[in-house]
Design a protein around this nucleic acid. Structure first.
Lengths: 146, 146
DNA sequence: TCATGATGCTCAGTGTGCTGATTAATGTGG
DNA sequence: CCACATTAATCAGCACACTGAGCATCATGA
């Protein structure tokens, strides 16, 4: 006996496994260079260009420090431009380059295909349930932190 | 328009958010020193002592490289012992110390409490559904890898 | 105007997680 | 017995993600 716990009843452990399985499949089916969080950032900038890092970090639910690194990498690869706001010297205004927009277009179709493969073990109703339940738990936790 | 995607339909993005929310709550309600993956390792050693790192990595679904770092940190903190197997000089045999067992006992009750808070937005049926669906997707992906 | 506070960013430090290369030890076939 | 493959662990390198500290800039009130 000894009181060991079944980790399959621990959502944190399962979430980590899920994320890891995802990033593996991502590398194989979507891109080796552009990671999933990077795609989230690019996607957010397609929807709302010319925002600063703080706003961006709220959009994609990433830390301010994490965003800084991530944006620096994307800028180094020429996918976006980081310009000091002349009206407010504290802000970096972010905008995708042509190359960034092209990358986004390419990855959108691939992510759709990957998501189908990833969720293939579930039927349509289960897929929606899974996404909805995760979102509810995540939303509630993030609510508490605000 | 411009083709931006709704990230709430992307399981990878949701998985990352879920995991992040979890690790935040973990730090607040369970332990600041011992992380969730570290607990998974300790828990596995409670169930099966005297295994090597490779076996351990399969038990908790963590990479061999990652296990090495993680185990080194736990050993440095005196929660487990890493001994070269005299019968097979390649292996490190792992065993919890008294302190490690004590830590596990303490954290088991706290993790149970934390999981209840974390999943509070869901009713009992939804909780089981969530855990089961995540496990199915993760299992299927890991299957492909093998 | 000028002190105070708030805001946006950066930096250092730590931990998690992967890949790929290397090293050491064991096992096996000729 | 020895060359060869296999296996376990380590190491280097990269990316993600957090905290906490510090810095520059802007906004506000006295």
């Amino acid at each position: 006996m000894g009181g060991a716990v079944d980790l399959n009843t621990h959502p944190g452990h399962l979430a980590r496994r899920l994320q890891q399985a995802h990033s593996l499949l991502w590398g194989a089916m979507v891109s080796e260079e552009t990671t999933s969080p990077q795609f989230a950032v690019i996607n957010a900038l397609v929807e709302k260009p010319d925002i600063d890092q703080r706003t961006l970090s709220e959009q994609v639910h990433l830390d301010r420090s994490t965003i800084a690194d991530l944006v620096a990498r994307l800028a180094r690869r020429g996918l976006l431009e980081r310009v000091r706001d002349p009206l407010d010297g504290r802000r970096n205004v972010l905008r995708l380059t042509e190359e960034g927009v092209r990358t986004h277009r390419k990855l959108v179709t691939r992510t759709a295909r990957m998501n189908r493969v990833f969720l293939a073990p579930l039927d349509e109703a289960e897929r929606e349930t899974l996404l909805r339940l995760i979102a509810r738990v995540a939303d509630a936790s993030e609510e508490l932190r605000a």
